[in-house]
Write a protein that binds this DNA or RNA. Structure first.
Lengths: 202, 202
DNA sequence: ATTAAAGGTAAGTATCACTTACTTAAGTAT
DNA sequence: ATACTTAAGTAAGTGATACTTACCTTTAAT
């Protein structure tokens, strides 16, 4: 993979910078080209459309994020501790890069072709890592086996994202420690009071 | 509140219908006007912009939804059972009205003025109802008190939404029963194996 | 009957994502 | 070196679209 042409790099860089201050829809291609110091047409030499440019920015972010996560997981033993690390790291990432929190939660998903993008490929890899941790936990008795693993994953990321959503939109500071502690308690121990929580609600 | 002018009603109806088949961005104002049998200009007599029209459709949906939820909650005793009802009803609503699932999760939130809309006012009322149920549960010993109520709410809706997301985007059928059962187990009982789940992970 | 407001229309306009047709630079094989 | 091919980059559109403006028409209260 030889390095990308200067123009392409400048375009991605410009778009990434613009995303700091405004949302996807309000960034124009003209503006992007001007910031990059190239002509508008060049954008379409390298990207199918404006969204593909967004996906590229997102992909680069996920690439760094995955490297970080894999580093964070090194040396951690046991599914529960690993999942706790995942929760904390994901929250920290959202807190430190609110632009990407916004992109992930609000801008990327609402087009079907995001799910064909190479950014989403990385998301899938991340999902796979988590599923394997959950399976590991089931195998060694840490995690209950009567819940479908994919729902556990949904609960983890759903909780994280919902807790970060308004912060990402209104650019408020997120206290990743408090959020992660609360989410962790809920998901691991349940919200029911007391040790014997086999109460039947049917 | 006297009844809205015919034109306004037709516009909202047309837009609601169009949302069944295409997403917000790909519906044009011209198309909306034509479907409604009015001119484009009339849309802007009643709505500040295209988004305001989306919020109106959403508001009408939430109004019906809230009535339904309040009916579902009637006669149900105890916070846990009430929350379970909330989970089931919300999931059923997403499963039966995937258009609205999509609007809520993907189309409405990514503009700040959604949070000033009267649709969002209803969401806030719904949130309030849930917070009160959680507080009730804490008061009568059903729900642990060492978790901030708002995070419990985040976990509930985050889990629901994340589990429905891809279904809403790709219009797959959602099995609301299976999802609700899984979410319910996770949130109420926790994912940790065994009754004594006071394992310390620090 | 008069008048003011509300309901509704017709014809724009500016903006924007994307195209097309072209030029220039960089490789590469002969 | 020369001829040729491909990639990088430009300039000038174009059609579509959200929204505006200026106008006409109906309704209903005084």
């Amino acid at each position: 993979m030889k390095d990308a042409p200067k123009g392409k790099i400048k375009i991605v860089k410009a778009f990434r910078e613009l995303l700091n201050d405004k949302n996807f829809n309000s960034i124009t291609t003209a503006e992007t080209a001007k910031t990059a110091g190239v002509t508008e047409g060049l954008i379409y030499k390298y990207f199918k459309d404006k969204r593909a440019l967004l996906y590229e920015v997102l992909r680069e972010h996920y690439e760094k994020f995955l490297i970080q996560i894999e580093k964070d997981l090194l040396g951690i033993e046991g599914a529960s501790k690993k999942l706790k690390t995942i929760i904390t790291s994901s929250l920290q990432s959202y807190a430190n890069h609110r632009v990407f929190a916004r992109i992930v939660m609000l801008e990327a998903r609402n087009s079907e072709d995001y799910f064909d993008s190479s950014a989403y490929k990385l998301v899938q890899r991340y999902n796979q890592i988590i599923l394997e941790i959950i399976e590991e936990g089931k195998a060694n008795g840490e995690i209950r086996e009567d819940i479908d693993s994919s729902y556990i994953r949904h609960a983890i990321f759903g909780s994280i994202e919902h807790a970060c959503l308004k912060g990402a939109i209104f650019e408020q500071t997120l206290s990743s420690f408090a959020i992660s502690e609360n989410i962790y308690r809920i998901l691991f121990e349940g919200i029911t009071q007391g040790t014997s929580n086999n109460y039947n609600f049917d």
